[in-house]
Computed example of a mutant assay.
Amino acid sequence: MSELVTGEAVALELRPAKLPSRALAVLLDLAVAVIAYIAVTMGVVAATASLDEAAQTALSIAMFVLLLVGGPIAVETLSHGRSLGKMACGLRVVRDDGGPIRFRHALVRGLIGVIEILMTLGVVAVIASLVSARGRRLGDVFAGTLVVRERVPLTQTGFVPPPPPWLAGRFSGLDLSAVPDGLWLAIRQYLTRMQQLDPQVGWSMAERLATDLAAHTGTPAPQGVPAAAYLAAVLQERQAREARRAFGNGPAGGGAPGGAGAAAGAPGAYGPPAMSSGAAPVGGQPVAQEEVGRSAVPHADAGPQTSAPQDAPPVDRPATGFVPPA
Score class of each variant (00 low, 15 high):
I101D: 01
V131Y: 06
S132G: 02
L19Y: 01
V40D: 02
G71V: 10
G265Y: 05
E116D: 07
Q285C: 08
R193Y: 00
A243D: 09
G135M: 13
G218M: 05
V26N: 00
P199H: 05
G7C: 11
Q236D: 04
G7P: 03
I61L: 14
A62N: 06
R294A: 13
T41A: 04
R104N: 11
R245H: 00
G283M: 07
F103E: 01
E76P: 06
T192Y: 00
S204Y: 14
Q196G: 05
L146G: 04
G265F: 00
V93T: 12
K86S: 03
A33D: 02
G255V: 15
A17L: 09
H216D: 09
A49G: 11
A168F: 13
V315L: 03
V5S: 13
P20L: 05
Y37I: 03
R92N: 05
G173A: 11
G81Q: 11
A143G: 12
A228N: 14
G250I: 08
A229P: 09
G71M: 05
G321L: 09
G98T: 09
V131N: 13
A246K: 07
L213E: 03
L78V: 14
I73P: 05
L12Q: 06
A229D: 10
T77F: 07
S295K: 11
G144R: 11
L130Q: 09
I127Q: 02
T41H: 00
S295H: 11
V292G: 03
P267S: 04
A312Q: 06
P325V: 11
L235P: 00
V225S: 01
G293Q: 13
D52Q: 10
L167I: 09
G110Y: 02
S2V: 05
T48F: 06
R22V: 13
E53W: 15
L185T: 07
R109F: 05
M63E: 13
A256E: 03
A206T: 12
V10I: 00
H216C: 08
T211L: 07
E207K: 10
F103V: 13
Q56T: 14
P72N: 04
D212T: 15
V179F: 11
G303S: 05
A252P: 15
A269E: 04
M1E: 07
G110W: 01
G182N: 08
L183D: 14
G173H: 15
A31K: 13
F247C: 06
F171S: 09
S129I: 08
A36E: 15
R188M: 08
P267K: 14
A210Y: 11
R208P: 08
W184A: 12
I127G: 06
G253H: 12
V108D: 01
P281T: 14
D181P: 05
L4K: 00
